[in-house]
Structures are given as C-alpha cells and as structure tokens.
Design a protein around this nucleic acid. Structure first.
Lengths: 153, 153
DNA sequence: GCCTAACATTTAGGCTACCTAAGTATGAAT
DNA sequence: ATTCATACTTAGGTAGCCTAAATGTTAGGC
C-alpha cells in the first residue's frame, strides 16, 4: 500500500471513528450508567485496579477518574481500598452490587447491539469480526504512546 | 451465525466502540477545533445545510448544533443564511476561511492517523478497509431510527 | 381570511465529564 | 534528614450535551 492509498484509508478511518461516537450516542442513551462508568465496572472486576491505571485505561487524567469512581462509590457499586503495598495508592474494587450492576448493564447494551447487528449480512459481520483485533492493536499502540488531551489553549 | 455467536460479536463490537472513543481522544487532543466542529465544517461545504440537518448528522439535539455553529460563526468559519424557501429555517454555509480551516484540520488529523496506521501490517489495513462500509451501513441504519439521548434521569 | 396546530430555530438554565493547578501524604534516594 | 518524585484529592474552570420555554413562520381547516 503506497502513501497515497494509506492517506486515503486514514481519512476514511477518521470518518469511522466519528461514526463510532455517533453510534455510541445512539446505543448508550437512556441508561443510568454512562459508558465510562460501565467501563470502570468492567475493568475493576476481581482484584481491582489502582486509580492511575483506571485513568490510563479510560484515556483520561487521574482527577477525572477520581470523579467517576467517587460517583460509583456513592451509589455503592465500587469501593476504594488502601493498597497494602503502597499507602499513597488506592485500589478500586467492584462490590457485589457492582458485579450485579455490571452484569445487567452489559447484558442490556449487548442486547441492543445485537438488534443492530441483526440487520447485517453474514459477510458484513465477518468483516467486522476481522477488524476487531486490528482496533485492539491500534489501541495498544496508543497506550504505549502519548498522554491524554494536553490541550493547547 | 447463530444467536450465541452474534451476541459474542456484539459484545466485542461494543468494546471496539469504546476503543474508538479512546483512540479519538488521543488523536484529537491538542487541536483548536473540536471533532464536532470539524464535522460541521466538512458537512457544510458548498450549498450548506439547515440547522436541523446539521444536528441530525451530528447525532445531537438542535440546540446543541446551534451552539456549535454559533461558535464557528463567531470565528468566521461558517455563516448562517436565511433559507429563501422557508423563512423559519436557517442554512449553515462554510465561508472561504472555513474552507481553508477545514482543509487544514483534515490534513493535520489525517497525517496523525497515517502515523498510526503506519504501524500496521498490510492484511490488517485490509481488514480495516473492509470494515468501513459496514460501519457506514450501521450508521445509516441508526439514522433512520431513534433520536439522540433522551435521558431517563 | 382567520385561527390553530405544527415546525425551525434560539435562548436560558442545568448537568456531566473532561481539564489544569495546587494541596496532602507517602515513598525513595542521597 | 532532607529532598525529590509519586499517588491521589480538592478546587475551579470549560466544552458539549440536554430539556423547557420563547419567538417567529408555515400550513390546514372552517
């Protein structure tokens, strides 16, 4: 693939990201937990994660993660525990009620997504499936790179 | 593809949408125009669009579109003209300076995306390319359906 | 021809989620 | 022991979305 083709693909892929935001908006509306909050629940299953890791996974700064976690804590879906190995750190862990809420939120959202995918042909579904690991790779690559926003303004 | 497989794909695809948000955040940071604003510039090339159509394309309510357009108007990148066929309506049109700003913003963002895609193998790029029209179809399908958020809270 | 209902947009006010900067407390290193 | 770095929280600000209500325009029924 030459530079010209790559640039063209890049441009179309940019468009796809915008569509993804649009699609998310349509699918996640009318729900008690935000996408971000469900993400936090999903990543804090089991042993839990430190606040900084939560922030990194979300792609936001630490204070933003603190805020979301605080909100989830207020409604009893996660807990903040002291990290035994480092008294500065905090470990975010899902509570049993958090487990339940996560399970339900995921089920509902997945069901809604199924109704969308149901309108696609078999080969289209296959194309989606094939693209998933590529997105994962892109994501992984970006994780190793830059920080969140760092606005210029 | 049976129901079980479809549900599994749906779940993974949900994850991909979340990644898309993450990737957007990394790629669109440090820029003078927001993704939404660039989208507006891109869609108002030429004849322009009515405010309601801008909102629908963005997947937001009309007042939100008004706000973004007002911001772009303030810096001289778009104009609001009266619709000759309907005095209630407004047509949003890109100005020459808007043309220039759109061209530059697109170039910069695409360049950044190219550096990401550059880390992928040929078959991975092909998988992305194949998924693009499918995303378009999903998007089109959602456009024909529901409205924006309509939060329950 | 008028009146009412529907429509396109703006204005006003509110909330969420992000940001930076600064403060607190702990850890590590000289 | 002091100093610098790290992990997090608090405080304050902004962007972008929302709903509800106000304004002006069009279209249909009588």
């Amino acid at each position: 693939m030459n530079d010209q083709e790559l640039a063209e693909l890049a441009e179309r892929f940019r468009g796809m990201l915008r569509l993804a935001v649009f699609v998310s908006r349509r699918l996640d509306g009318s729900s008690d937990l935000s996408t971000t909050q469900v993400s936090i629940l999903n990543m804090t299953e089991g042993a839990g994660l430190r606040m900084g890791v939560v922030a990194a996974n979300l792609g936001v700064r630490v204070p933003s993660a603190t805020e979301q976690v605080a909100r989830l804590e207020r409604v009893g879906l996660v807990e903040r525990r002291a990290d035994p190995s480092d008294a500065r750190a905090v470990v975010v862990v899902r509570t049993p009620r958090g487990d339940q809420a996560a399970e339900e939120a995921n089920r509902r959202r997945t069901a809604r997504m199924v109704t969308v995918l149901d309108t696609l042909e078999a080969d289209e579904l296959e194309a989606l499936r094939a693209a998933l690991p590529v997105m994962d790779k892109i994501n992984e690559h970006l994780h190793t790179l830059s920080n969140p926003k760092e606005r210029l303004s």
